[in-house]
Nucleic acid binder design. Structure first.
Lengths: 187, 187, 187, 187
DNA sequence: TATGAATGAGACTTCATTCAT
DNA sequence: GATGAATGAAGTCTCATTCAT
């Protein structure tokens, strides 16, 4: 059944996000999912494939939310803000998934192929990135540098709001945080 | 001899930074250090203590460089720039140590006690942080938020310059990167 | 299969009784049982649990034989003799189990919980002990003292007959040994 | 110095009696004795020799006390009672030594040679044993059987009085215990 | 004699994966 | 597809003993 596969992914997500990949035996994933140890290997050829599938799963879910937020926006500025908000909101609403993605940003268990699969999913997102990159080129800023720094700033903000969730509810602080983000790249 | 302890720390740093903590057997650390397997446990009571000692070692070395850069500066602005530069330079010049620190920022193998030991080391640095925090409070920005975001921005810049070392040599790009950093917090 | 668990217990008994607990590696127990090293830990969570299970196993087997011998007896005197004979016979017929029990009488690897489990097994035996204790109380002898000494005397007799098995076959000597035992407590 | 050798023996006795031989690292013995790890191996060629020396030491001390008690007695009966009392008293007054001897009664680390050394020490004791053995032969009881049972009875009594030291102080109970011992062999 | 850093064989245990049912 | 007992390579750590100082 497809149920068991989903149960395994969900169980793995929960455990990986708390204990990390290497500290989570497949036997525990199975038990936590309520299936037998052998079942995991019917659905995933190895533990490594499981983590790759899970990574794909989480990343795609995140990107979908961001994509949706872009669609609703019109100007570039609106899009930027929409993405900023969407990412933070998603991270706060999908704590386990976000933690798991963060842990595996540079993890070598995630295959290059998996990372590529993520990148080629959303045309909408690719267009937006291109738009921003062109803008930065015009401004004489290396697009990759700005991409790296923006992404880091968002991670920083998320990290802060995860520790202080009540402040995310305060629209003044949220706005101040966004201004800091925006100021970085605007005159 | 103190040599063997140092050799073990150095060997562990090299291997952890490439392969990660859990993927590095203690037997490999010993072999790579040119000592017997038992020697590791003569100097460190466990693998976990080894990583903690190494973390302490790396962090202290980094902080010393930052501390020195602050001493040479006068105004707050000078200090901010000095820290920004010092951190990036140190990361580029101490690739393994930096990678190792990044890997272990949220890693639970590093004990809270070890993190505390780091924090209580430099009065100079504590004074600087206080200075910045006060400034941010005046500007009505939560100091912790700014701390988190600044730190993330620096990590982003480092990540970029590690991938594009030739650009760090270009003072124009370096300056542009710094402006992005500074703009974030200044009107 | 239950076979492998039994094979492990049997292998452990054989080795422990000859070499002692600490001098018997788990790898040897597995090899001797004809199973893989991991199998031991599939059935017993640790070497310590193995020894506890084995102790339980041996003690229960011994108690069952004693229990049976009591059932067949009528008077208190008959019961005492029956127990005396049953214990000696069991020890001679179950050399490894007896040796193992002796080795672990005061061994701290056997958990208090395990010892309790043994004590709460046989109502028949508890009744007999109570009967004897009451008798000794009437005679003004501390029941625990008599229990300790009787038990020691039986151990002594067993020890002797293990070294001189041909004498156990001689009913005169057996009877003399029993008289020594009985005289101790009777006027 | 002879001090260090004595300190090592005393440290080993303390630790062995609590933790057992195999559970006591030589490093702990040394530390507990206040000497370096290497020092142990200057005085004893191996851990095994240490335990043998200690065994010899304890046994001889015990035998000396028993020997003295025999000397003071006249009749055979007096001697028997003297030995019974001396052994129990010694065990209660030399708890660690007694425990250590009990633990090692059948321990294979004690070499046969060491056991022989003990036996050939006291002429007084050998004469007493011969005296008893002859007596038992006359009574048609196998001397070794009686020896084994007597010795076990004394161990049982000691075990009881160690758990209930206040009862040893009560001369009535002490006397009752002795009567039980004596009755076993006398008409 | 005394020291204690160093050694390395070997102990217990874990865990991804297989396969007969 | 599902099960879970079984596997055995590999991991961390212990400890009796040595030897240069």
């Amino acid at each position: 059944m497809i149920d068991k596969r989903a149960a395994l992914l969900s169980s793995a997500l929960e455990l990986f996000s708390i204990r990390g990949y290497e500290n989570t035996p497949t036997s525990l994933i199975s038990k936590n999912a309520g299936v037998a140890t052998g079942t995991l290997f019917h659905h995933f050829s190895s533990k490594e494939e499981l983590i790759n599938q899970l990574y794909l799963d989480c990343k795609l879910k995140m990107m979908q939310q961001i994509e949706n937020s872009i669609k609703a926006a019109k100007s570039t500025d609106d899009k930027i803000k929409a993405v900023w908000e969407a990412m933070i909101r998603w991270a706060l609403e999908n704590e386990e998934r976000f933690l798991f993605i963060m842990q595996n940003k540079r993890n070598s268990y995630i295959k290059e192929e998996t990372r590529q699969q993520v990148k080629t999913q959303s045309d909408e997102l690719k267009a937006f990135i291109l738009e921003i990159d062109n803008l930065n080129t015009l401004r004489n800023l290396p697009p990759d540098l700005i991409a790296e720094i923006s992404s880091s700033m968002i991670d920083g903000a998320i990290s802060y709001f995860r520790r202080n969730p009540e402040q995310y509810a305060d629209s003044k602080i949220r706005e101040a945080a966004y201004q800091v983000f925006k100021n970085a790249f605007m005159k």
